[in-house]
Amino acid sequence: MKKHRLMGLVLSAALFSIFLPMALMLLWSVAGRWPWPGLLPETYSLRTIKELLTGSASLPRLLSSSILLALTVAVLGTAVGVMTARATENYGFPGRSLVRFGSLLPLLVPGTVFAMGIQITLIRLGLSDTVAGVVLVHLVAAVPYCITIMTDVTRAVGTGLEEQAMVLGAGPVKAFFLTTFPSLLPGILSSMSMGFILSYSQYFTTLMVGGGRVKTIALVLVPYIQSGDRSLSSVYSTAFVGSALLVFFIFEGIIHRIQKGERKP
């Protein structure tokens, strides 16, 4: 009983720490005048909503481009994670441990150092200030997490069913997609959600490599926060958190439905 109460208190505290800032951001987004120490705004205004929907920084266009870019990174990062995990877990070859260690190296390099160094390389390759360059940089940040997730899932799934399918006459590709892939699918979606969040929240690398031409919602959000315009920064923050949570819950919903379907006899 005490354990359940403790878990309930922890969960309540976690929900409170999440929803209270969200409520304050929603309130700030429609606040016209809110002098200290008032608990509520004195006046309300839809200035920020109109600015976002009809101004130069169109929120729908900004959200769609940011989500599309992050989903591209998520798909590519997960594909690399699946191939790397299968290579290191299912096959023995010289340097396998080195590959595993190398996949974690991007986590050891500070983001600012990496962004400044990779920018010079991308300028020489003609990829600076391009979407392709931003996707490539985001991939470097997301791939270590995708590989880690897919390595654990691949190790848990194993190759037993795949080997049996090949013994019965199925080719390697057919055996993988008929036996192993359905078991890997929840892990693939988890890897994609991680890759999406990591790409969606990138600011400094996007600024350095994209040069301000590749705009994402994180790139637009930070200057408003620094400018002190609490109303506009609150609207952008709410849109940023809400859109990220929406995509995350979509991934989680798909995973839940897949796992629920697997439990049915």
Rank of each mutant, 00 (worst) to 15 (best):
S231F: 08
S45N: 06
S191M: 00
Q226D: 01
R5N: 13
S199N: 07
V167H: 01
L76A: 06
A57H: 12
E262I: 13
T84F: 03
L232A: 15
L219Q: 14
Q226A: 02
K260N: 10
V75F: 15
K3E: 10
T112Q: 04
Q226Y: 03
P182I: 05
L207C: 03
A79S: 13
P37T: 04
F251V: 00
G38L: 05
T112P: 08
A31V: 12
S66K: 03
V135A: 08
E262T: 14
T179I: 00
V167T: 06
G169F: 04
H256A: 15
T154G: 13
G171S: 08
G77L: 02
L27Y: 07
G187T: 14
E51A: 04
S64F: 12
W36K: 15
I67C: 03
I18W: 11
V235H: 02
L71R: 00
T78L: 14
S12K: 12
A141L: 15
E89M: 11
K264L: 11
K50F: 04
G92L: 09
L24A: 14
L69Y: 08
Q119E: 01
A218H: 02
G32A: 07
M192C: 07
R61I: 07
L168I: 12
F101D: 03
L26N: 08
F248M: 12
P223F: 15
G92W: 11
M194I: 03
V99A: 00
P182E: 04
R5G: 14
Y224Q: 06
H256N: 13
E162F: 15
P106Y: 14
A13W: 05
G95M: 00
M83V: 02
G92Q: 09
I147H: 13
T151I: 04
L219D: 14
V137H: 08
S45A: 09
L221G: 05
K50A: 03
I67D: 00
I118Q: 03
F196L: 01
I120E: 02
M25E: 13
L136W: 13
F196E: 06
G261A: 00
G8I: 00
T206G: 01
F19M: 12
T78D: 14
R47N: 08
A14R: 01
L168G: 13
S237G: 09
M166F: 04
G102K: 12
G77S: 06
M116Y: 10
